[in-house]
Computed example of a mutant assay.
Amino acid sequence: MNRGQAILLGIGIFALGGIGYALFQANGLEGFSAGIATSAVLTVLVLGWTSSYLLRALTGKMTYMQQRREYREAYDSLTNEQLQAKFDALSPEEQERLLRETGQLADDPSPP
């Protein structure tokens, strides 16, 4: 969130408070009672938003983290497919040599 968006969010919350105050007054609450009710509603909304943010942060389900996870999975999948295609293009002897070099294939024991 950039500075402009934060300012707009603050103005929106103030506007929501004013609208809430007018609605409470229209429904019969007067003066301080309407102000207290509006403050209570806004406090509950802000605490709910904050707690949902903390929950997403603690569980790792934030947008950026989710995007990174999905990007990494797609990158790994593509890389594995490309490596498999290159490996399949090698001759059987080259495949066997490569597997031995990487330790994926044990050397055949020589008869004594």
Results as ranks from 00 to 15, higher is better:
Q66V: 14
S52G: 13
R68I: 07
A34W: 00
Q67W: 15
E70C: 05
E101Y: 06
S77T: 08
G60C: 14
F32V: 05
E73F: 12
A34S: 11
D108A: 12
L55P: 00
R100V: 05
G48E: 01
L42K: 01
E30F: 07
P112T: 10
S33C: 06
T50Y: 08
L99F: 06
L45A: 15
G35Q: 07
R100A: 00
G10Q: 02
L105E: 01
D88P: 04
V46L: 08
G17M: 01
A15L: 09
F87K: 04
K86R: 13
E73T: 09
N2K: 15
R72C: 05
Y75P: 03
L58H: 13
N2R: 13
L105A: 11
A40V: 06
Q104R: 14
W49T: 02
S52K: 14
A37H: 03
L29H: 04
S39M: 14
G10N: 08
R68W: 14
A85I: 09
R69A: 10
Q66N: 14
T63E: 15
F87P: 05
R68T: 05
G20W: 03
V46G: 00
A22L: 09
P109S: 13
G35N: 02
A57Q: 13
R72S: 05
G31Q: 14
G28S: 08
S39L: 07
R68K: 12
Q67C: 04
N27M: 12
L54A: 13
R97I: 07
Q67R: 15
W49F: 07
T102P: 01
I19R: 09
T102A: 10
S39I: 03
D108C: 06
L8R: 11
E30N: 13
G103W: 03
Q66W: 12
A74D: 07
S51L: 07
G28C: 12
G17S: 02
E93P: 00
G31M: 08
E30T: 06
V44D: 02
T43G: 05
G17C: 01
T79Y: 02
A26P: 00
L54M: 07
G4F: 05
L16N: 03
M1A: 06
Y71G: 02
S51D: 09
R3W: 04
P111A: 11
G12W: 02
F32R: 09
L45T: 00
L16Y: 01
L105P: 02
E73K: 10
L54Q: 14
L45K: 07
G103R: 05
S91K: 09
I11N: 11
A89L: 07
S77N: 08
G60W: 09
L55T: 14
E96S: 04
L54T: 15
G18H: 07
Q82A: 15
S52A: 14
I7A: 10
R97K: 10
Y53E: 03
Y21R: 00
Q66G: 13
T50A: 11
G12T: 02
T102K: 10
V41M: 09
L105N: 08
K86W: 12
S110V: 15
L9N: 04
A34P: 04
E81P: 05
V46R: 10
L8I: 15
Q82R: 15
D76H: 03
N2P: 01
G35K: 00
A22D: 06
W49R: 06
